[in-house]
Computed example of a mutant assay.
Amino acid sequence: MSNGYPRLLEDRDVLVVRGDEQKRALVRGWLDGYDGPLPRYRIELFLGKDLYTATAMDMFEALVRLRRQLEPKGWMVAVQGSRRDTYPSGMGRDVGGGRRIYVMRMGRAATSSDLVDTLADAALDQLATIAEQEAYRDTWHAAPKHRP
């Protein structure tokens, strides 16, 4: 592609877990360019000799699509975007490409201090499946909130 694309945004090792099994994997996040006004993000995960890749209009959705490939095999990626209690806002997806997401605390409105990087490391006890993450998001949205 021209105009400096694809652009490498993330290039580092992450922990990938399956039950008691833990492996290091290389994750790369790319901005491949634009289709008109719409961005195209790509995530690659090199797990042993296997390569998993997913593309989407934001980095968080690319991660979700990558996780959809890994979950049936029992693998979870230990990054903030795989936590039960994280999710991007619509504006964060549109303006920020889903590269930062909110930690959602029950009963509390999210603020800028709750933002974390989608592909930053996460503790293993915070990881969840996509379905668990979406259920938490729905419950958080429905719950009354107060401002901190």
Results as ranks from 00 to 15, higher is better:
Q80I: 04
L119A: 05
R105S: 15
V116W: 05
D35W: 07
G98W: 02
R108C: 08
V116P: 09
K23I: 02
I43D: 04
S112A: 15
G36Q: 12
Y5G: 03
L47R: 06
W30P: 11
A62Y: 04
A122W: 12
R99Y: 09
K145F: 06
E10W: 14
E21N: 07
E44H: 14
V64A: 02
S89D: 05
D20T: 06
E44F: 09
L31Q: 14
G96D: 11
G81H: 00
L119K: 11
D94R: 12
R100P: 11
L9M: 03
R93V: 11
V14D: 09
V79W: 15
L127Q: 02
A142C: 03
V95F: 14
M59K: 02
D35E: 14
V17S: 12
G4F: 13
G97R: 06
P88K: 00
D11P: 00
E44Y: 12
M104V: 04
M59W: 01
M76Y: 04
D94V: 09
R147L: 13
L9C: 00
Y5E: 04
V79N: 11
R65S: 01
R67Y: 03
G19T: 12
L26I: 08
V79L: 13
P72Y: 06
E10Q: 09
L119I: 10
R65P: 08
Y87H: 13
T86V: 07
P88N: 04
G74M: 03
V14H: 00
D117W: 11
R7V: 02
K73E: 08
L63T: 01
V16R: 03
R65D: 06
R100A: 15
G92W: 01
H141G: 01
K145D: 12
A56I: 07
D58Y: 01
S89H: 01
Q80P: 11
R83S: 13
D114C: 04
S112P: 12
Y41G: 01
